[in-house]
Design a binder for these strands. Structure first.
Length: 225
DNA sequence: GACCAGGCACATC
DNA sequence: GATGTGCATGGT
């Protein structure tokens, strides 16, 4: 087991959970809403995503069939508050088109598909990268996949858990190899890391009051990963 | 007014 | 294979 900081990922999880409590992720009332949110939140503040999802709901368009049938301009208009609305409209369409053509837009048809197969299929869709695919797998489809994001990378690098040149797959492997394969744990851990990141782990870090401030770290010199 | 946010694809070298 | 750039809104 790697203990470069003297702390295991399980112990770090406990520090975060004790400090912040349960985060109740993913915010979203249905599986499909979570899937849409995963695309809309790309490089965007969640409050902007909420507005876009609100627009889709108000227009009665938060269903696979509606998004499938909407023209690009109308979809882009509805999701405008989430930013990058033209590119995200295409990405949502690509995802929903795949869901229709391959699985007839029925989530139950995904249940028996192995996680690896599903992940590869999602990654093959233009506009769905590793973080978006993994967010869908974990939060919408309840698969035990750890979601890595910029905050995860910053925390792991700054506390010496991994080298700063680590890529997405290496970071994911770090967490998945050291933690039990547990959907609820992966759900809460990622959400807690986002909470940590928002409060303390920005590109210009704040340390005072950080639940991890007593861990050996190099925050002052740490790269803005 | 600058910085940042729960990325990704594509062009260029 | 690594690096740079476009995509865009809204909060701090």
């Amino acid at each position: 087991m790697i203990r470069m900081t003297g702390w295991t990922l399980t112990e770090i999880y406990r520090l975060l959970y004790d400090a912040f409590g349960p985060q109740h992720w993913w915010p979203g009332q249905t599986q499909f809403e979570i899937i849409v949110g995963a695309v809309l939140t790309q490089n965007t503040n969640w409050t902007n995503v909420e507005k876009a999802i609100g627009n889709l709901k108000s227009a009665g368009c938060l269903t696979p069939a509606k998004i499938h049938s909407l023209d690009h301009a109308r979809l882009a208009e509805l999701i405008r508050p989430a930013g990058y609305f033209n590119i995200k409209a295409k990405r949502l369409k690509n995802l929903v088109d795949w869901f229709f053509e391959k699985y007839h837009a029925e989530l139950c048809n995904l249940e028996n598909v192995p996680t690896d197969t599903l992940r590869a299929a999602l990654l093959a869709i233009n506009g769905i990268g590793p973080e978006t695919a993994d967010s869908i797998l974990l939060y919408a489809l309840n698969r035990p996949i750890f979601v890595v994001d910029a905050y995860t990378a910053r925390m792991a690098v700054r506390h010496g858990l991994i080298g700063e040149d680590a890529d997405y797959e290496q970071l994911q492997q770090l967490f998945q190899s050291q933690l039990p394969s547990d959907v609820q744990l992966f759900n809460e851990y990622h959400a807690l890391l986002v909470r940590l990141g928002k409060d303390y782990c920005r590109p210009r870090p704040r340390c005072n009051g950080c639940p991890l401030e007593n861990l050996p770290h190099n925050v002052a010199e740490g790269p803005a990963v």
